[in-house]
Design a protein around this nucleic acid. Structure first.
Length: 273
DNA sequence: CACGAGACCTGTTCGC
DNA sequence: TGCGAACAGGTCTCGT
């Protein structure tokens, strides 16, 4: 579920505190409880516990949809996948249903990784590049330029939407923001990437950054499980709005399947050229 | 290389 | 009310 803006919202809460979290920096791990073994991708669950105890948090950041927590000797990477969430709270509070991993800190607080669908994964590694090294461009950083995007598109015969969802091309876009960006740029999701001209590429580049920034400004979207009180879901242009009016032209929004993903389009604004 | 199907999981919603 | 099907913000693997 969580895409770049939702992950960014959580990372900011872990950095600054607020929204169900207190700042993680300098907290020292005194114990870890793995409640669902497969949540730990690497190393084995018992080794994870053994290795993380005694280390303190030295940094919190984001790369694509990954949360990166730098510790004294290793790096913990968290991917929330479809239903993951993180709380930082006092240890006296009761565990919640679907809590999968707990880290207890010396100050009496703890981090809880909660994940109803059990798709989320946590790594504890010395070399984070082994996990996140293959990720593509960060869409909100300087390296993501219209020219860089154009180059990627010209090299591919794939449909544009699955390409936007490919984390090795651009890191952080998911189903919501792909649909929103393509609508804003007036591009049909099935358009072959290399058929998108320079002008449309520029529009797509703008749209990607705009929808991601707006998502962050609104603290992400909250669907099904609530995320940080984010309210971007109230500003969707097309996502989950099939049968309703396009905000640009009033045409009824349609839901189609593209690359096996539910996809929302305005058949009037997003015409294949 | 690109695409589709299936797997991994649980919970909610919708139609009958 | 109950029950099954469809669907969900993601990604990986396998077969064609």
């Amino acid at each position: 579920m969580p895409e770049l803006p939702e992950v960014e919202t959580i990372v900011r809460a872990l950095q600054r505190g607020g929204q169900g979290c207190s700042p993680l920096l300098d907290k020292k791990v005194t114990g870890a409880i793995v409640l669902w073994a497969r949540t730990i991708a690497e190393p084995r669950a018992d080794l994870f516990v053994q290795q993380i105890v005694g280390q303190s948090v030295r940094g919190v950041s984001r790369r694509g949809k990954f949360i990166r927590i730098d510790l004294d000797r290793q790096v913990m990477l968290i991917h929330l996948r479809m239903s993951g969430d993180i709380r930082v709270e006092d240890q006296v509070i009761a565990l919640q249903p679907h809590d999968r991993l707990i880290l207890n800190f010396v100050d009496g607080t703890r981090l809880a990784f909660n994940d109803a669908r059990k798709f989320g994964r946590v790594w504890l590694v010395a070399e984070p590049e082994s996990v996140i090294g293959g990720l593509g461009l960060e869409p909100l950083e300087r390296s993501f330029t219209p020219a860089a995007l154009h180059r990627r598109l010209q090299n591919s015969a794939r449909q544009i939407k699955p390409l936007l969802l490919d984390q090795t091309v651009i890191a952080g876009i998911g189903n919501i923001y792909a649909d929103e960006a393509l609508h804003m740029a007036r591009i049909h999701p099935m358009t072959p990437a290399r058929k998108i001209d320079q002008e449309q590429t520029r529009a797509l580049w703008d749209a990607i950054r705009e929808v991601l920034r707006e998502g962050i400004r609104r603290n992400g979207a909250s669907i099904d499980w609530v995320y940080r009180g984010g309210d971007f879901q109230n500003y969707f242009r097309v996502y989950q709005r099939s049968g309703r009016a396009c905000p640009e032209c009033g045409t009824t929004i349609e839901r189609v399947i593209v690359g096996q993903r539910g996809t929302h389009i305005c058949p009037c604004c997003q015409v294949m050229k």
